[in-house]
Protein backbone atom coordinates (compact mmCIF):
# COMPACT_ATOMS: atom_id res chain seq x y z
CA UNK A 1 0.00 0.00 0.00
CA UNK A 2 1.22 3.44 -0.86
CA UNK A 3 -0.19 5.02 2.23
CA UNK A 4 1.63 2.92 4.80
CA UNK A 5 4.09 4.83 6.86
CA UNK A 6 6.49 4.13 9.62
CA UNK A 7 5.65 6.82 12.15
CA UNK A 8 9.11 6.35 13.63
CA UNK A 9 10.38 8.13 10.50
CA UNK A 10 9.91 11.46 12.31
CA UNK A 11 13.69 11.42 12.22
CA UNK A 12 13.46 12.66 8.61
CA UNK A 13 11.49 15.69 9.75
CA UNK A 14 14.11 16.60 12.37
CA UNK A 15 16.88 15.96 9.86
CA UNK A 16 15.06 18.24 7.45
CA UNK A 17 14.85 21.01 10.05
CA UNK A 18 18.56 20.66 10.78
CA UNK A 19 19.52 20.85 7.10
CA UNK A 20 17.09 23.71 6.57
CA UNK A 21 18.88 25.65 9.26
CA UNK A 22 22.30 24.83 7.78
CA UNK A 23 21.11 25.70 4.29
CA UNK A 24 19.56 29.01 5.38
CA UNK A 25 22.80 29.96 7.14
CA UNK A 26 24.76 29.15 4.00
CA UNK A 27 22.36 31.19 1.86
CA UNK A 28 23.03 34.23 4.03
CA UNK A 29 26.79 33.61 3.97
CA UNK A 30 26.73 33.20 0.19
CA UNK A 31 24.69 36.33 -0.28
CA UNK A 32 27.29 38.35 1.61
CA UNK A 33 30.27 36.74 -0.17
CA UNK A 34 29.47 36.75 -3.86
CA UNK A 35 32.99 37.85 -4.88
CA UNK A 36 31.89 40.04 -7.74
CA UNK A 37 33.79 43.10 -6.57
CA UNK A 38 36.31 42.94 -9.45
CA UNK A 39 33.47 43.06 -11.97
CA UNK A 40 31.89 45.94 -10.10
CA UNK A 41 35.20 47.82 -9.91
CA UNK A 42 35.74 47.27 -13.63
CA UNK A 43 32.29 48.66 -14.50
CA UNK A 44 32.54 51.58 -12.13
CA UNK A 45 36.02 52.44 -13.40
CA UNK A 46 34.61 52.63 -16.94
CA UNK A 47 31.90 54.91 -15.66
CA UNK A 48 34.47 57.25 -14.11
CA UNK A 49 36.73 57.18 -17.18
CA UNK A 50 33.84 57.93 -19.50
CA UNK A 51 33.23 61.15 -17.59
CA UNK A 52 36.86 62.15 -18.07
CA UNK A 53 37.32 61.61 -21.82
CA UNK A 54 35.30 62.96 -24.68
CA UNK A 55 33.74 60.55 -27.16
CA UNK A 56 31.15 60.64 -29.91
CA UNK A 57 30.93 56.91 -30.66
CA UNK A 58 30.48 53.92 -28.42
CA UNK A 59 31.30 50.23 -28.33
CA UNK A 60 28.58 48.31 -26.56
CA UNK A 61 28.30 44.69 -25.48
CA UNK A 62 29.83 42.10 -23.23
CA UNK A 63 33.28 40.77 -22.54
CA UNK A 64 33.84 40.15 -26.27
CA UNK A 65 33.83 43.94 -26.63
CA UNK A 66 35.85 44.51 -23.48
CA UNK A 67 38.58 42.07 -24.56
CA UNK A 68 38.59 42.20 -28.31
CA UNK A 69 37.64 45.66 -29.51
CA UNK A 70 39.73 48.73 -28.97
CA UNK A 71 38.24 52.19 -28.69
CA UNK A 72 41.76 53.60 -28.74
CA UNK A 73 42.54 51.97 -32.09
CA UNK A 74 39.20 52.96 -33.61
CA UNK A 75 39.80 56.55 -32.53
CA UNK A 76 43.16 56.48 -34.29
CA UNK A 77 41.80 54.83 -37.43
CA UNK A 78 38.66 56.95 -37.84
CA UNK A 79 37.53 60.50 -37.43
CA UNK A 80 35.52 59.63 -34.38
CA UNK A 81 36.26 59.42 -30.69
CA UNK A 82 35.30 56.07 -29.27
CA UNK A 83 34.69 54.66 -25.82
CA UNK A 84 34.55 50.97 -24.92
CA UNK A 85 31.57 50.13 -22.70
CA UNK A 86 32.02 46.35 -22.86
CA UNK A 87 31.10 44.81 -19.49
CA UNK A 88 31.52 41.33 -18.11
CA UNK A 89 28.65 39.13 -19.34
CA UNK A 90 27.02 42.24 -20.80
CA UNK A 91 25.62 43.12 -17.39
CA UNK A 92 24.11 39.61 -17.01
CA UNK A 93 20.71 40.85 -18.25
CA UNK A 94 19.77 43.23 -21.06
CA UNK A 95 17.77 45.56 -18.82
CA UNK A 96 20.73 45.84 -16.44
CA UNK A 97 23.08 46.77 -19.23
CA UNK A 98 20.92 49.43 -20.81
CA UNK A 99 20.21 50.97 -17.41
CA UNK A 100 23.96 51.09 -16.76
CA UNK A 101 24.54 52.86 -20.09
CA UNK A 102 21.74 55.35 -19.44
CA UNK A 103 23.03 56.11 -15.96
CA UNK A 104 26.64 56.38 -17.14
CA UNK A 105 26.19 58.71 -20.12
CA UNK A 106 23.98 61.74 -19.63
CA UNK A 107 21.11 62.39 -22.02
CA UNK A 108 22.74 65.33 -23.75
CA UNK A 109 25.91 63.38 -24.46
CA UNK A 110 23.92 60.38 -25.64
CA UNK A 111 22.03 62.48 -28.16
CA UNK A 112 25.35 63.46 -29.75
CA UNK A 113 26.62 59.93 -30.25
CA UNK A 114 27.24 59.27 -33.95
CA UNK A 115 28.01 55.54 -34.00
CA UNK A 116 26.81 52.84 -31.62
CA UNK A 117 28.45 49.50 -32.31
CA UNK A 118 26.72 46.68 -30.46
CA UNK A 119 28.49 43.35 -30.38
CA UNK A 120 26.86 40.54 -28.44
CA UNK A 121 27.47 36.82 -28.09
CA UNK A 122 23.84 36.17 -27.16
CA UNK A 123 22.92 34.54 -30.50
CA UNK A 124 26.06 32.41 -30.30
CA UNK A 125 24.83 30.30 -27.43
CA UNK A 126 21.72 28.19 -27.67
CA UNK A 127 19.18 29.30 -25.07
CA UNK A 128 21.32 32.19 -23.88
CA UNK A 129 18.85 34.92 -24.86
CA UNK A 130 16.05 33.32 -22.88
CA UNK A 131 18.42 32.58 -20.02
CA UNK A 132 19.39 36.26 -19.81
CA UNK A 133 15.76 37.24 -19.91
CA UNK A 134 14.99 35.21 -16.81
CA UNK A 135 18.22 36.09 -15.00
CA UNK A 136 17.85 37.54 -11.53
CA UNK A 137 21.45 38.82 -11.40
CA UNK A 138 22.24 42.49 -11.11
CA UNK A 139 24.64 44.35 -13.38
CA UNK A 140 27.66 42.97 -11.47
CA UNK A 141 26.39 39.42 -11.45
CA UNK A 142 25.22 39.41 -7.85
CA UNK A 143 21.99 37.64 -7.11
CA UNK A 144 19.52 38.78 -4.47
CA UNK A 145 18.95 36.62 -1.43
CA UNK A 146 16.87 33.79 -2.84
CA UNK A 147 16.20 30.09 -2.47
CA UNK A 148 19.47 29.12 -4.09
CA UNK A 149 23.03 30.38 -3.52
CA UNK A 150 25.17 31.98 -6.23
CA UNK A 151 27.89 29.37 -5.70
CA UNK A 152 27.51 25.88 -4.37
CA UNK A 153 29.02 25.02 -1.01
CA UNK A 154 31.02 22.28 -2.73
CA UNK A 155 32.52 24.84 -5.10
CA UNK A 156 33.52 27.13 -2.25
CA UNK A 157 35.06 24.27 -0.31
CA UNK A 158 37.02 23.13 -3.38
CA UNK A 159 38.27 26.64 -4.10
CA UNK A 160 39.25 27.00 -0.46
CA UNK A 161 41.31 23.81 -0.46
CA UNK A 162 42.74 24.46 -3.96
CA UNK A 163 43.54 28.02 -2.98
CA UNK A 164 42.26 28.89 -6.45
CA UNK A 165 42.08 32.54 -7.53
CA UNK A 166 39.09 33.68 -9.54
CA UNK A 167 39.48 35.53 -12.84
CA UNK A 168 40.10 39.15 -12.01
CA UNK A 169 39.34 41.98 -14.41
CA UNK A 170 42.23 44.47 -14.43
CA UNK A 171 41.32 48.15 -14.38
CA UNK A 172 40.50 49.44 -17.89
CA UNK A 173 42.61 51.83 -19.94
CA UNK A 174 41.68 55.44 -20.71
CA UNK A 175 39.02 54.74 -23.36
CA UNK A 176 37.64 51.77 -21.50
CA UNK A 177 39.85 49.24 -23.31
CA UNK A 178 41.02 46.07 -21.62
CA UNK A 179 44.47 46.29 -20.05
CA UNK A 180 46.47 43.28 -21.21
CA UNK A 181 49.66 44.48 -19.54
CA UNK A 182 49.70 42.04 -16.65
CA UNK A 183 47.27 39.62 -18.15
CA UNK A 184 48.29 36.04 -18.80
CA UNK A 185 46.06 34.68 -21.53
CA UNK A 186 45.08 31.04 -21.46
CA UNK A 187 44.53 29.38 -24.82
CA UNK A 188 43.91 25.96 -23.39
CA UNK A 189 40.13 26.20 -23.28
CA UNK A 190 37.63 23.72 -24.64
CA UNK A 191 35.96 24.82 -27.84
CA UNK A 192 32.25 24.29 -28.28
CA UNK A 193 30.27 25.44 -31.28
CA UNK A 194 26.65 26.40 -30.86
CA UNK A 195 24.08 28.85 -32.16
CA UNK A 196 20.65 30.10 -31.20
CA UNK A 197 18.45 28.82 -33.99
CA UNK A 198 14.99 29.79 -32.82
CA UNK A 199 13.98 32.49 -35.26
CA UNK A 200 11.27 33.93 -33.05
CA UNK A 201 13.74 34.30 -30.19
CA UNK A 202 16.29 35.98 -32.45
CA UNK A 203 13.68 38.29 -33.92
CA UNK A 204 12.42 39.42 -30.53
CA UNK A 205 15.97 39.92 -29.35
CA UNK A 206 17.01 42.03 -32.36
CA UNK A 207 13.89 44.15 -32.12
CA UNK A 208 14.18 44.70 -28.41
CA UNK A 209 17.90 45.49 -28.47
CA UNK A 210 17.66 47.85 -31.42
CA UNK A 211 14.71 49.61 -29.78
CA UNK A 212 16.74 50.15 -26.62
CA UNK A 213 19.81 51.34 -28.46
CA UNK A 214 17.89 53.79 -30.64
CA UNK A 215 16.07 55.10 -27.59
CA UNK A 216 19.31 55.62 -25.68
CA UNK A 217 21.28 56.96 -28.66
CA UNK A 218 18.54 58.64 -30.75
CA UNK A 219 20.87 60.14 -33.37
CA UNK A 220 23.40 57.37 -33.71
CA UNK A 221 23.97 54.98 -36.57
CA UNK A 222 23.47 51.57 -35.00
CA UNK A 223 25.67 48.72 -36.10
CA UNK A 224 24.87 45.18 -34.96
CA UNK A 225 28.10 43.20 -35.00
CA UNK A 226 28.48 39.46 -34.72
CA UNK A 227 31.78 39.01 -32.92
CA UNK A 228 34.84 37.10 -34.09
CA UNK A 229 35.38 33.74 -32.49
CA UNK A 230 37.72 30.79 -32.77
CA UNK A 231 36.49 27.24 -33.14
CA UNK A 232 39.22 25.59 -35.22
CA UNK A 233 37.96 22.38 -36.75
CA UNK A 234 34.73 22.61 -34.71
CA UNK A 235 33.59 25.61 -36.73
CA UNK A 236 30.36 24.73 -38.49
CA UNK A 237 30.19 27.24 -41.28
CA UNK A 238 26.84 26.00 -42.49
CA UNK A 239 25.20 26.55 -39.10
CA UNK A 240 27.01 29.86 -38.59
CA UNK A 241 25.90 31.13 -41.99
CA UNK A 242 22.41 29.88 -41.44
CA UNK A 243 22.03 31.88 -38.22
CA UNK A 244 23.77 34.87 -39.71
CA UNK A 245 21.33 34.82 -42.63
CA UNK A 246 18.39 34.61 -40.27
CA UNK A 247 19.66 37.68 -38.42
CA UNK A 248 20.38 39.51 -41.64
CA UNK A 249 16.88 38.76 -42.92
CA UNK A 250 15.33 39.97 -39.70
CA UNK A 251 17.20 43.25 -40.06
CA UNK A 252 16.51 43.67 -43.78
CA UNK A 253 12.87 42.61 -43.71
CA UNK A 254 11.95 45.09 -41.02
CA UNK A 255 12.27 48.67 -42.27
CA UNK A 256 11.53 49.95 -38.76
CA UNK A 257 14.86 48.56 -37.63
CA UNK A 258 17.30 51.24 -38.72
CA UNK A 259 20.37 49.18 -38.07
CA UNK A 260 23.37 48.03 -40.03
CA UNK A 261 24.40 44.40 -39.74
CA UNK A 262 28.00 43.19 -39.84
CA UNK A 263 29.27 39.70 -39.16
CA UNK A 264 32.98 39.59 -38.31
CA UNK A 265 35.21 36.79 -39.56
CA UNK A 266 36.42 34.11 -37.13
CA UNK A 267 39.83 34.70 -35.50
CA UNK A 268 42.45 33.20 -37.82
CA UNK A 269 44.32 31.48 -35.00
CA UNK A 270 43.81 30.33 -31.44
CA UNK A 271 47.07 32.06 -30.55
CA UNK A 272 45.39 35.45 -30.74
CA UNK A 273 42.59 34.54 -28.34
CA UNK A 274 42.47 34.91 -24.59
CA UNK A 275 40.70 32.65 -22.05
CA UNK A 276 37.79 31.90 -24.36
CA UNK A 277 36.97 31.35 -28.02
CA UNK A 278 35.14 34.67 -28.02
CA UNK A 279 37.91 36.84 -26.54
CA UNK A 280 40.88 38.18 -28.46
CA UNK A 281 44.22 38.87 -26.77
CA UNK A 282 45.99 42.16 -27.53
CA UNK A 283 46.92 40.88 -30.99
CA UNK A 284 43.45 39.45 -31.56
CA UNK A 285 41.93 42.72 -30.48
CA UNK A 286 44.05 44.59 -32.97
CA UNK A 287 43.04 42.17 -35.73
CA UNK A 288 39.32 42.31 -34.95
CA UNK A 289 39.27 46.08 -34.46
CA UNK A 290 41.03 46.55 -37.78
CA UNK A 291 38.36 44.55 -39.57
CA UNK A 292 35.61 46.52 -37.86
CA UNK A 293 37.35 49.79 -38.60
CA UNK A 294 37.53 48.92 -42.31
CA UNK A 295 33.84 48.11 -42.32
CA UNK A 296 32.94 51.34 -40.53
CA UNK A 297 34.87 53.35 -43.10
CA UNK A 298 32.50 52.04 -45.79
CA UNK A 299 29.41 53.39 -44.02
CA UNK A 300 28.28 56.67 -45.59
CA UNK A 301 28.44 59.55 -43.11
Amino acid sequence: MLYTVNVKSSIIFYMFLFFLLMYSSYLIYDHNHQNMEHIKDFGLAKRTLSEEVSFDSVLLGGSNVAYSLSAEQLTLESNNFWFNFGLSSEGFKDENYWSYIEETIDKDKRSKIKFAVYSSISPFKSGHILYRKSSIQNIWGEIPLSFFPSLSLAHRLKSFFDNKKTLIYPMPLLRGDFNFKNKECNQNYIVRFEREMKEIVLQEWVESQSKDISRIFPNAKIIFVMPSEFYGSKYDRELADSMSNVLKNIVLSNPRLEIIYFSQNPFPSQKITCDSMLHGNSEGRQWRTKELSQFLSTIPK
Binding site: Y23, I143, F148, P149, S152, L153
Partner: peptide, 17 residues
Amino acid sequence: PISQFIIMLLFLLLAMS
Protein backbone atom coordinates in the same frame (compact mmCIF):
# COMPACT_ATOMS: atom_id res chain seq x y z
CA PRO B 1 16.27 7.91 6.52
CA ILE B 2 19.80 7.15 5.30
CA SER B 3 18.88 8.01 1.69
CA GLN B 4 17.16 11.17 2.85
CA PHE B 5 20.25 12.14 4.81
CA ILE B 6 22.47 11.67 1.73
CA ILE B 7 20.00 13.56 -0.46
CA MET B 8 19.86 16.50 1.96
CA LEU B 9 23.63 16.54 2.35
CA LEU B 10 24.13 16.53 -1.43
CA PHE B 11 21.55 19.27 -1.77
CA LEU B 12 23.39 21.39 0.78
CA LEU B 13 26.67 20.85 -1.07
CA LEU B 14 25.50 21.19 -4.66
CA ALA B 15 22.55 23.59 -4.74
CA MET B 16 23.24 26.77 -6.63
CA SER B 17 21.46 29.22 -8.85
